[in-house]
Simulated assay, not measured.
Amino acid sequence: MRIIALYSPKGGVGKTAAAVNIAYLASQDNCRTLLWDLDPQGASSFYLAGAEPVKGRKLSKLLEGKSPMAKFVHDDIYPGLDFIPAHSSFRNFDIKLDQDDGDGNQLKKMLAPLSEETSLVVLDCPPTLSRLTEQVLDVADQVYVPLVPTWLSMNSWNQLYEFAKDKKLGAKKLRPFFSMVDRRKNLHQSLVQQGPERLNNYADVAIPYASVVERMGEEGLPLEKLDARSPAAAAYRELWSVIKNDLW
């Protein structure tokens, strides 16, 4: 079982859209996939199920061993794609992890029972630098970091990279790529061109800013089902190709 995370210390950068689309593409590529929405806002549920998102279960029941991991999994949201939706209690994830200090990586322990039936786990992470972030960076084989091509996002990337280095959590796992790229803006064009020079482990993919991505929440569909011919859908397919090459 391979594990990837979609993570950014900044919100509003297209992280969840990338997580949902990559999870769907993987599942359609003969890769049994689990998408786990770790963000208590639960945006992945809207992208997968529109106005009636699937309901999650309380975190405490999982961490306290009162409910097995399998009880949290919604099987076959799409063929080959399982889903663990977020719950509002996920906002307490860091508190629970601190209470279990010294007891190893809890995320790794939670996911272990699913390893025989799951080829790829996709973690959609909240935009925080926290204990949960540390465990995600530790357990993931690769961490894909969407960046809007602005100086503020570039600064947040530098902070994340240094954080991973300082904590010895595998900064080389971090794979930045540009997201919500508006080619009409000179700054966006310039930073995308400078990506290979400015960003360590740069994944040479640029997801365009597009209204069709925003429609994912309204329609409750990944782009391959909503508009597979769109440039954004093509860009996500390119990103999946990069990820697949990184992992296997």
Rank of each mutant, 00 (worst) to 15 (best):
K96Q: 05
L97D: 05
G102W: 01
G102C: 01
D103G: 02
G104D: 05
N105M: 06
N105Q: 07
Q106K: 11
L107M: 12
K108L: 06
K109P: 01
K109M: 08
K109R: 10
M110G: 01
L111M: 07
L114T: 00
E117A: 04
T118D: 00
L120F: 00
V121C: 00
V122I: 10
P126L: 11
P127E: 08
P127V: 05
S130W: 13
R131F: 11
E134T: 15
Q135Y: 02
D138Y: 06
D141P: 04
V145T: 14
V148I: 09
P149C: 03
W151F: 10
L152D: 09
S153Q: 14
M154G: 12
N155Y: 14
W157E: 08
Q159C: 09
L160P: 13
Y161D: 12
K165M: 13
G170V: 11
K172C: 07
L174C: 13
M180F: 04
V181S: 03
R183W: 15
K185I: 10
L187F: 02
Q189V: 14
Q189A: 15
V192Y: 06
L199Y: 02
N200A: 14
N201K: 05
Y202S: 01
A203C: 09
I207T: 00
A210M: 04
A210P: 02
V212S: 10
R215W: 13
R215P: 08
E218L: 09
